[in-house]
Simulated scan of single mutants.
Amino acid sequence: MSGTAQFGDFLQTRRSQLRPEDVGVPTYGERRRVQGLRREELAQLAGVSVSYYTRLEQGHSLSASPEVLDALATALQLDDAERQHLHTLAKPAKQARRARRPAPERVPEATVQLLHALVAVPAIVLGRRSEVLAWNRLGHALFAGHLDFTAVDRVAERPNMAQLVFLDAHTRELYADWHSKAKAVVGNLRLMAGQHPDDAALHELVGQLSAKSTDFASMWADHRVKACATAVYEMRHPLVGPLVVTQQTLSNGPGPSVVVATAPPGSPSDAALSLLAHLIRA
């Protein structure tokens, strides 16, 4: 999907998700034929003309200023991540770019050293398409112990966390609140798709997941975006049982991100991670 199409689709979808009562628009008890706000109602809230907003939503106008984008974001009640996403989508709309297949992502040497240093902490390195570029022993055992540890060393066989979450029975069972984890995965992919509109491999991944998973297709159509920074998940690990971990994404610029899982020192979950580390050394 082009940047222009993503921009208009995002506006239309988020407009449909806002109810008049959410933003103080009176309806006077009338029967409404559209879901959410009408175009004219959102245009009024944003302080732009209806014709101009319609052109933006339909992809016929490529000149939205930062001030107009901020006004639209405020009217749509977007959070900071969603507001930035709106600005990002507006940028490629100004100049269409041909989709291309970039070279496989590489793990910087500094990240490799960090991964080796985190011996007692589950850690994996993810690329922008959710591919697992590297992991340490404990990260592999926690997130995907049923897979070949050396798969990450072969580009064509690298596991993909988005595919695992939606298409792999083991991973789906691993998360007690699978829906929450799935929404976070989709929200992050939305951000990546907006930032890299010319990444053909990323678009292929989205198409594949949409075709194979109705859950993914539904969540993707919702246009929610979410930066995967910190989240708490209850996990049901087949070797050590239930545990609660905080997953944190450590990112330094546009390159791969390191995802670590921790638990409060001395907690039952911390003991479960220690047991898992013992089991994989045995």
Results as ranks from 00 to 15, higher is better:
Val34Asp: 08
Gln248His: 04
Ala162Phe: 01
Ala227Asn: 04
Val186Ser: 07
Val23Gly: 00
Gly266Lys: 10
Phe143Leu: 15
Ala117Thr: 13
Leu76Phe: 06
Thr74His: 10
Tyr52Ser: 09
Lys181Trp: 08
Leu69Pro: 04
His179Arg: 14
Leu174Pro: 11
Pro265Arg: 12
Glu21Cys: 09
Val245Thr: 12
Phe216Cys: 05
Tyr233Glu: 04
Asp70Arg: 14
Gly255Ala: 10
Arg19Leu: 15
Asp70Val: 03
Gly29Val: 05
Ala117Gly: 00
Arg190Ser: 05
Asp148Ile: 10
Gly127Trp: 08
Leu189Trp: 07
Ala81Gly: 00
Asp22Trp: 07
Glu157Ala: 08
Leu275Gly: 00
Pro104Val: 07
Ala156Phe: 08
Gln44Leu: 13
Leu239Lys: 12
His85Ile: 02
Arg190Ala: 13
Gly253Asp: 06
Arg100Ala: 13
Gly36Glu: 06
Thr214Arg: 13
Asp9Val: 04
Val34Thr: 15
Cys228Met: 11
Leu133Phe: 06
Ala182Ser: 10
Phe143Ile: 05
Gln84Arg: 15
Val107Glu: 01
Ala169Val: 05
His278Phe: 01
Glu105Gln: 15
Arg14Cys: 04
Ala271Ile: 11
Pro159Phe: 06
Ser130Phe: 01
Tyr53His: 07
Gln208Ile: 03
Thr74Leu: 04
Arg236Met: 09
Pro159Ala: 11
Phe143Lys: 05
Gln77Arg: 15
Asn160Met: 10
Pro238Tyr: 04
Leu275Ser: 12
